[in-house]
Amino acid sequence: MHESMNDSANQPQRKILTFISRKSPYGQSHAKACLDMVLSAAVFDQQVNYVFMDDGVLQLRRGQEPAAIDSKNLSAAFSALPLYEVNNVYVDTQSMQDRGMSTEDLVVEAKPCTAGHIASLIRQSDVVFNL
């Protein structure tokens, strides 16, 4: 925080931004809204952590067929994350277990983590977006 107070607005800065996505992929717009924020932050060359927890882990599930409900496939966009150099993708193990999922069900490579690990990610972050 001290850095941001001393730097002028014109100087390029790098912050650690953590995005916690906790809603299911369809039915609400949160998942897509969060993904768009992540990609924008990545375009601005920020250090991004992308965390999936609660119903958010369902976004990563293989075999989504949202065309049946006239929705765009959100999971297809996740394959673009490495191109944006978003490599710190985390998935909450407990949330997966609660929903009968394992890492084998995931459409992208995500690092399984615990609530304690997510708490430390939050502590290390400059800004956290939670949606």
């Binding site: 924020m37 924008s40 800004v127 977006f129």
Partner: peptide
């Protein structure tokens, strides 16, 4: 305007406070 304005604001601000997700 676009999300870039939010990212820019995030970098410049001391705190970002969100309401209603």
């Amino acid at each position: 305007s676009g999300l870039g304005q939010l990212v820019d604001a995030t970098l410049v601000s001391d705190r970002v406070v969100s309401f209603g997700a």
